[in-house]
Design a protein around this nucleic acid. Structure first.
Length: 356
DNA sequence: TCTGGGGTCCTAGGACCC
DNA sequence: TCTGGGGTCCTAGGACCC
């Protein structure tokens, strides 16, 4: 709607076109028909045939995301991204500059609405998790303040699935113990520890081990090894490029295979030497494919993920620093050419790499 | 009509070390 | 004679989030 005001008030469904794929997002008008994110496209079409189906536009989302965080950072240096469109702002100590936190929070939300013409909601509390729950409850376009001291009273009547991290499985498990609300959960110390991380740092504040991955569902199931290798190369080039632009090396490579019956396996391999180079990543991923692919079964998805990332793979490297540097230079050149002339400009001479 | 793609976190078992 | 306890790393799978 920010880009096309004519869509205001219409049932808009992003993603899930052609019956393939799933819904990424749906406007409130579309949700009235039961359409929601992660729903298969054909189902959304059935529920809401008059829906306006739009393709996803990731570049645009990233641009809006940056603008959102630029606004958040006007009010505090302590801004933590929870996702592409959600952030936690620590307003501790900002009273002298901006006034009472609840007024500041409202101002932030207003600025996002006015400057970016995006709907925005927010929550304010003494704890990031409580603030997030409050923000979710205030949707759409609301604001909810949970003052200090009233946190427990606010949380107690809420269903356990209001807690971030409590999904259908956990909800069912808790129900079997007779726990429906957060208040009931709070009476059970063991279950509270499992699901409610109000102290000791919120989920989004804990240190995390980055990973960079790429996966794709093929247009049609693939049985030919040659074709799988071509797909794998595309994924590896994507991952390799991202490793290089982020200046990191990966110590582990994980291959993901999903068969047509949706059975999914992952197989990983940790290297002696961290890498960011397409050929090496491909060697590892293709080796994992060779060793783990069930013969004769058609594959619908392949994925490659790099993890155990570090910017300083050098010390532990078994490679000579010199050799590594020349590889780095080679791939810098490849990335420049691809950036300048397009992705198809330069590729490997042959996707068949001999492994020793 | 089949079910995306990007991630993080947790668990559990086994190898290995001291 | 039949087997401790603590810790780390690696692997695989699954829950969950947006």
């Amino acid at each position: 709607v920010a880009l096309n005001p004519a869509l205001k008030g219409k049932p808009v469904i992003v993603g899930g076109r052609n019956g393939r794929g799933v819904v990424t997002s749906a406007s409130y008008e579309a949700r009235k028909y039961g359409v929601h994110s992660a729903m298969p496209g054909f189902q959304a079409k059935k529920l809401c045939p008059q829906g306006i189906f739009l393709p996803t536009r990731h570049g645009i989302y990233g641009e809006f995301s940056q603008e959102i965080f630029t606004i958040l950072e006007r009010y505090s240096p302590e801004v933590h991204a929870i996702s592409i469109d959600e952030g936690v702002v620590d307003l501790t100590g900002t009273e002298k500059l901006f006034g009472p936190p609840d007024q500041t929070a409202r101002k932030i939300i207003d600025q996002i609405r006015m400057e970016l013409r995006l709907p925005a909601s927010g929550g304010l509390s003494t704890n990031p998790v409580v603030a997030k729950i409050a923000a979710t409850l205030s949707k759409p376009n609301g604001f909810l303040h949970v003052p200090a001291g009233s946190e427990e009273a606010f949380l107690s009547p809420l269903p356990v699935e209001s807690i971030p991290g409590v999904g259908p499985k956990a909800q069912k498990e808790l129900l079997q113990r007779g726990i429906r609300t957060v208040g009931e959960l709070l009476k059970d110390p063991e279950q509270s520890r499992r699901f409610l991380h109000l102290n000791g740092g919120s989920r989004e504040e804990r240190s995390h081990d980055h990973s960079i991955g790429s996966e794709t569902t093929m247009d049609a199931p693939v049985e030919e090894r040659d074709e799988m290798e071509k797909v794998l190369w595309g994924l590896v080039e994507h991952v390799g490029r991202r490793l290089r632009t982020e200046g990191t090396y990966a110590r582990s490579i994980t291959l993901k295979i999903r068969y047509t019956n949706f059975a999914t396996i992952t197989r990983s391999c940790t290297l002696a030497t961290p890498t960011r180079f397409d050929r090496q990543i491909f060697e590892v991923a293709n080796g994992l494919l060779r060793e783990n692919l069930s013969p004769g079964r058609a594959v619908r998805l392949l994925g490659v993920t790099a993890s155990g990332l570090s910017s300083s793979g050098w010390q532990e490297s078994l490679f000579g620093a010199q050799e590594r540097r020349s590889w780095d230079e080679l791939y810098q050149g490849i990335d420049r050419l691809r950036h300048k002339y397009g992705e198809k400009t330069i590729g490997v001479a042959s996707p068949r790499i001999r492994t020793r």
